[in-house]
Nucleic acid binder design. Structure first.
Length: 462
RNA sequence: GGCGACGUACCCAAGCGGUCCAAGGGGGCGGUCUGCAAAACCGCUAUUCACCGGUUCGAAUCCGGUCGUCGCCUCCA
């Protein structure tokens, strides 16, 4: 099986070959912590989690770096308007962000560097770019990257640098630069920045956005590493600029594989922080959606497809998860004396689908067809105990990638539910169907479905 | 104006020239089971893949055109 990805650089499906066999260096663009992440941001982190989990499943050792952008225009503006220190603001949102990742069962990165921790290194690199003639200083003390000094500029985004020069959308910032397309490496402090400025030989100021990723990725992963991810909106200008800086700085290839996830839309409409039509994870959980159902929803659409987020879809996801959990429950009940058929475990189909540019729908299709087969055999008492054990092992393996079956399984306040189930059991024994049904109804309004099975009453999320 | 993506059943969605007169999930209908349900199982729910033409022995899959939806073109994942 060969792992293939659509590389943004070539827009083609390419066989993945890590620089060092068996190891993958992965950099994923993290959040700008000026506000709570919305569900669209989380879609990208979800895609990156699937990528990382599948690489680990394939046996690679993954070094994963995710930056935290804790200084830029937005964080500074927000800190000042909310009358907080920059650190108070960014630490608060960083904490919420990391909590959201945990809630969604997203594996944490190995390194989570903050931009503010690397400013001296950024200054040092900007100095090198100036020395090499790839950047220039303005009178006010800002430093800009000279796009004309890098002939390959525009290759990732497939944009013609000449046309960028005469673009309609002139930058609205008030820095002086030679060309509209040039971008900031260092921004001299403005009065609206308050006290937030760091020293440099050009001015007290702060780094531009793009330089942080160039510096922090190479710091942890080396000048040439395997994979760099982000949302499609990062292709231009952010990643284009990162490439320009890094290539000019080190004269190395920088990144082999660029992967970008499509946007999430809500009810068919584009969503972005600037439009303000966003749901946070908490907003969604407040509507009785379980974290695993949200996770499944974000996971189940291939990363290069737009994902239309709707609440009915989250409900569908919950049902799909329930089906897999029901399968686990039934498999665990197969008696040890049971003999019968041993259906084929769909390892190959699952891996082949994910190998093909993370075709998650194909992988889920293979798992669910197999699930149907298993249910059928169990209904006919024709699944051997050994096959059931092997199937459970396979489900555990798949869930190392999916993270929805065993995750968050018993998080509900179970005691109260169990008490009501007990009460209902007694009512059923007494033939008090009205009372039994009333209890079932009551739990249903709390999003809990009761099912009477041969081995007793069980409950699941609705 | 430039670059690019997409259009498959009621909804979501796989499919990458034949094994597809099209996976899988959700929904609906009928049946088995059940105190009733639910779950599970069985059957049904696209002679068809936006539309038109072409290439081919053969196309949802390749090519051309039309229509439609959407994204990017300086800092929004």
């Amino acid at each position: 099986m060969t792992l293939k990805f659509t590389n943004t650089l070539s827009r083609r499906l390419e066989t993945f070959e890590p620089i060092h066999p068996g190891e993958v260096s992965l950099y994923t663009c993290g959040p700008t912590v000026y506000d709570t992440a919305h569900i669209g941001n989380l879609r990208t982190f979800m895609f990156e989690d699937l990528l990382k989990r599948f690489l680990i499943y394939k046996g690679y050792r993954v070094s994963h770096v995710m930056n935290i952008t804790d200084v830029d225009d937005k964080t500074i503006d927000r800190a000042i308007t909310e009358d907080l220190s920059l650190t108070e603001l960014t630490e608060h949102h960083t904490r919420i962000f990391l909590e959201d990742l945990r809630t969604l069962n997203i594996l944490p990165a190995d390194y989570l560097p903050r931009a503010t921790e690397f400013i001296p290194q950024m200054v040092e690199s900007i100095k090198v770019l100036l020395e090499k003639g790839h950047a220039y200083r303005t009178d006010e003390g800002s430093v800009f990257f000279d796009v004309s000094s890098f002939p390959e500029y525009g290759r990732l985004a497939r944009l013609d640098p000449e046309q960028l020069r005469s673009g309609e959308r002139v930058a609205d910032d008030d820095y002086q630069k030679d060309e509209a397309r040039d971008f900031a490496l260092w921004k001299a402090r403005k009065p609206t920045d308050g006290d937030y400025a760091w020293p440099s030989q050009w001015s007290a100021g702060r780094p531009g956005w793009h330089i942080e990723c160039s510096i922090m990725s190479t710091h942890f992963l080396g000048k040439h590493f395997d994979i760099h991810c982000g949302g499609v909106d990062n292709i231009f200008p952010h990643h284009e600029n990162e490439i320009a800086q890094s290539r000019c700085l080190h004269n190395t290839p920088f990144v082999n594989l660029w992967l970008h996830s499509e946007h999430l839309i809500v009810d068919g409409q584009k969503m972005s922080k600037s439009l303000g039509n966003f749901y946070t994870l908490q907003d969604i959980l407040d509507r009785q959606c379980s974290p695993e159902a949200v996770r499944y929803t974000l996971l189940a659409t291939q990363y290069r497809q737009k994902l239309n987020f709707t609440f009915p879809r989250v409900q569908e996801s919950q049902k799909a998860i329930n089906r897999l959990r029901e399968l686990v429950r039934r498999l665990e009940e197969v008696p040890s004396s049971q003999t019968g058929t041993r259906p084929e475990i769909p390892d190959k189909a699952v891996e082949a689908a994910l190998d093909d540019d993370l075709n998650i729908a194909g992988a889920l299709g293979a798992i669910f067809s197999w699930a149907r087969e298993l249910f059928g055999l169990m209904d006919g008492c024709d699944l051997s105990h050994e096959a059931a054990s092997k199937s459970l092992e396979a489900l555990r393996r798949y869930d190392e990638i999916l993270g929805v079956i065993y995750f968050n399984l018993d998080s509900e306040t179970g005691a109260d539910i169990k008490r009501l189930i007990k009460e209902r059991d007694q009512a059923r024994k007494d033939g008090d169907w009205a009372r039994a049904d009333a209890i079932r109804e009551e739990l249903l309004t709390r999003g809990i479905i009761l099912e009477d099975t041969s081995s007793g009453t069980i409950w699941k999320k609705g």
